[in-house]
Design a protein around this nucleic acid. Structure first.
Lengths: 148, 148
DNA sequence: CCGTATCCATTCCGATACTG
DNA sequence: CAGTATCGGAATGGATACGG
């Protein structure tokens, strides 16, 4: 995870996958983001992951700045793993995977909603003027370098 | 890939990751989606992936229905791997990873645009009434089962 | 009970050589 | 060009033992 696992790839998606592309990592983040899990035992019970692998993944997530270790003042006998803003910002990745799974593998057990209003939330493409292009219409273009 | 790699996970994201969560898979799809690559040699040159691994991944993507093999009538001496609609629909996953990488690891070489208008395209959360909730406000709720 | 560390069998990956 | 075969090394999974 720390050594470049996709060498020679000048691409943000590849660099992101060097951090979150390993087995189990995105499911750990899912549990933290949408189930509020913070403790080691919660992750093991939820995932059935081997304990040595979980320890390694949590260590990597903390090292990468996606999670941080907190020790609650009340219960100082254990630590908690909390998402940072950097980790929380991966929510669209999880939602995108979920929406694809719902659409192509059959609906799963959850939908996404706005916590304040309860309105259903979806993830989609949008332009500055408020249009929603089709998937097929979205293309990648080389970024115009800022002319300093 | 075909044997359940995340057993006991009743979750669309986990099921999606059983198909696209292996090393290299999402980068192969990125090349197919945004660079138009269709041939074996294009993927090897782009990724630097071992040939046996690429063969295994392509085979898996075809088996899962994300790609299909075409033999162009003009050049029947080679095959091409084309995305299906199912594969193309993973575009939001790639874009979500790219946007996160741009934001947290430094901007990458590309942006996403509407092919028709050239307008910049972003991926974001939206509600039915057109609002855009913050990441922190998006929560998962158990799907209300259809009352048949 | 919480979490970590170690050992070992199995699977996966990567580099190279090879075939049509 | 498009793969397949092989083999050494790395990652993973599971059990178990260890420390607080």
């Amino acid at each position: 995870m720390l050594g470049k696992t996709y060498p020679g790839q000048d691409c943000s998606a590849a660099r992101a996958l060097e951090i979150v592309g390993e087995r189990w990592t995105l499911l750990i983040l899912r549990d933290a983001m949408f189930r509020g899990y913070v403790r080691y035992s919660q992750f093991t019970e939820s995932l059935g992951i081997a304990t040595n692998i979980l320890a390694r993944r949590l260590e990597g997530l903390v090292a990468a700045g996606l999670m941080e270790i907190r020790t609650p003042m009340s219960r100082s006998d254990h630590v908690e793993y909390h998402l940072t803003r950097k980790g929380l910002d991966l929510k669209p990745v999880i939602v995108a995977l979920t929406q694809w799974g719902d659409a192509w593998l059959g609906p799963g057990p959850v939908t996404f909603r706005d916590a304040a209003t309860g309105a259903e939330v979806s993830l989609g493409f949008q332009t500055a003027d408020g249009r929603a292009p089709e998937v097929g219409a979205v293309v990648a273009r080389r970024r115009t370098p800022p002319t300093i």
